[in-house]
């Protein structure tokens, strides 16, 4: 299968500049950082092999969302095992083993959010996308992004406040 030259150039640039952050973003969104690299590469292969019918103006956001769905599917395929582990109180501690204390709390708080809020949060705070860019990438209105972001910040503030020993006020 031939790959257009222009796409090859885009791939090289994307992998060199955006790929590490996108892998991290997918790991944060899914809470399954071990499968993130596989999922991102699968998404890139899918993008090149069967490009979407319309131009993708925000490839990082597109790959992040597609790959997080892919990683979620991988995770669900092992869901029974995960549920069994949860029931007996076993959690994969190796996932957070390399992180420092506050970052463990942030990652855990993020995992407690609904998926759409996690996507919006990670695209905004990690990939530094504006509300307008996130909306464009997700194909939703800016109002939806603002709402999801507002709810995510409120929930994260509540979850992180005890650890930080201070009170967060919604504002």
């Amino acid at each position: 299968m031939a790959v257009a030259q222009s796409t090859q150039v885009d791939l090289d640039v994307f992998v060199a500049t955006e790929y590490p952050k996108v892998v991290a973003a997918v790991g944060l969104i899914t809470g399954n950082r071990q499968d993130a690299a596989d999922a991102v590469q699968d998404a890139l292969v899918g993008y090149l092999a069967k490009p979407p019918g319309r131009p993708i103006s925000n490839l990082a956001a597109w790959i992040t969302v597609v790959a997080s769905n892919r990683a979620r599917d991988l995770y669900r395929s092992r869901a029974a095992e995960a549920r069994a582990l949860e029931k007996v109180g076993v959690r994969d501690e190796t996932v957070d083993a390399e992180l420092a204390g506050l970052d463990v709390d942030v990652a855990a708080a993020l995992r407690g959010l609904p998926e759409q809020q996690r996507q919006v949060c990670v695209l905004h705070y990690l990939l530094d996308h504006s509300v307008e860019q996130v909306a464009e990438g997700l194909g939703v209105s800016t109002g939806t992004v603002k709402t999801q972001l507002h709810r995510a910040r409120k929930a994260l503030a509540a979850r992180l406040a005890p650890e930080r020993g201070e009170e967060e006020h919604d504002g």
Partner: peptide
Amino acid sequence: ELDELLRDSFARIAETDAP
């Protein structure tokens, strides 16, 4: 402050995860 905390924390996590 929360925005800053999230940006910093996400960046550190990304750095840890970066392949």
